[in-house]
Nucleic acid binder design. Sequence first.
DNA 1: ACAAAAGTGTTCGTGGTACACCCATGT
DNA 2: ACATGGGTGTACCACGAACACTTTTGT
Lengths: 233, 233
Amino acid sequence: MNKEPASVSAYDTAYPRIAMTVDCIIFSFDGNELKVLLLHEPDRPNDQWSLTGKFASDEEELDDVACRVLQQHTGIESAWVEQLRTFIHPRPAGKVLTVAYCALINSKDQQLQLSGSLLQWHSVRELQFTEFGHKDLVSYCYKWLQKRIQEHPLGFNLLPEKFSLREMQNLYEAVLETRLDRRNFRKKFFAMDLLVDTGEYENDVPHRPGKLYTFNFRKYEECKPNGTGITFL
Amino acid sequence: MNKEPASVSAYDTAYPRIAMTVDCIIFSFDGNELKVLLLHEPDRPNDQWSLTGKFASDEEELDDVACRVLQQHTGIESAWVEQLRTFIHPRPAGKVLTVAYCALINSKDQQLQLSGSLLQWHSVRELQFTEFGHKDLVSYCYKWLQKRIQEHPLGFNLLPEKFSLREMQNLYEAVLETRLDRRNFRKKFFAMDLLVDTGEYENDVPHRPGKLYTFNFRKYEECKPNGTGITFL
DNA sequence: ACAAAAGTGTTCGTGGTACACCCATGT
DNA sequence: ACATGGGTGTACCACGAACACTTTTGT
């Protein structure tokens, strides 16, 4: 934070002013695959997909802008949202500073608000083989999420309020692109002691129904910080 | 990324333009304590310390701006620098978007360039008990560093090119504010197999000199990514 | 009856933690 | 000789990984 000019009027002109967008990389899980929400502008060429986002001023907190982007496109009022990274992005009309956010929602409880543009869920796996403008950013965010979801129980944000352990495991297997042992997975989650047994069971399943759990957000908030032993990757 | 106006001239006025700074939280280690570099403007009240930083345009990569901030204040041409977080910061002359960076340098090899303003190293421990403008940001960055340094061997960036294991352990103990077992610490670092024995020894020490090592940056770059097992904090 | 997934314990190996003695150097 | 930190190995414990059978429900 360097010297500032003496007067406000000088300030207006002394420093460059730039345009800024807040973009959201919105993930959801359909039971099989991790999906990311992309939009297609009607006046653009086909198969040109971009992220949801909006231009912003300095009058609003960045987190609030990100929530508003999410709200406008999905109708969701509150969700897990976290700032990812900021970078300068060349655009047709000039360079823009973009603050990227990652959002996790559960798509089942919500309806997309289409709002003129075409919104569509895309498989994250498939996007690896597609070229599009924000491919690198989505990949970056996906890797970040893979790491983050192993350090914090974020998976709950991608599931309905009540979920079975099978759904949870499918989610982790999809996000981490691996297979996990069912017994060890259960053991781990029960040991965390953040699951609340609702007493209810799945229905609509063509086999023995599993128990439904909810996530104890309050308890999680209380017992976050630890971390003593040095452990490199 | 929403619709853009049809013409570039419309673009100039259609979206708000804001001022941006890139600020660096610069850490070093003096052998005992973790320090952070703060500057004091001559025309400000006493004991008003702020971070190093500069206003920036959209013409330069953010990482490059951060490096230039570092270079201007410390004379260091290349160092470990990582983007931390972006936020909107109220200033006397209006709101400013600030992109915060964390930098790690070893102060022994370098001389500070004082450049008119007063630059001074401050103990991170002591700052916990001081009120100043960027206190929260420094605390945030410090916590972030504590976590980051346990996942990646970043400590090397705070030490001279050749260092003893004692120096390294002092560093980790200072950053993590804890005591570590010497034998286990050595075992861990040797197991990583990223230390290169230089064959040289400390001098200037009033006791048996320790071996000096260098860090194998190349090997580290090659073997970064792993991470399979789910492990919450 | 059959298919499909739910639910449940034990063993083994790895890796972290705790701990004490002799060695090399400078004063 | 003495003080100071350098250098080394072993035993215990916790946690993650591997692994198979019985139970419940729907068709």
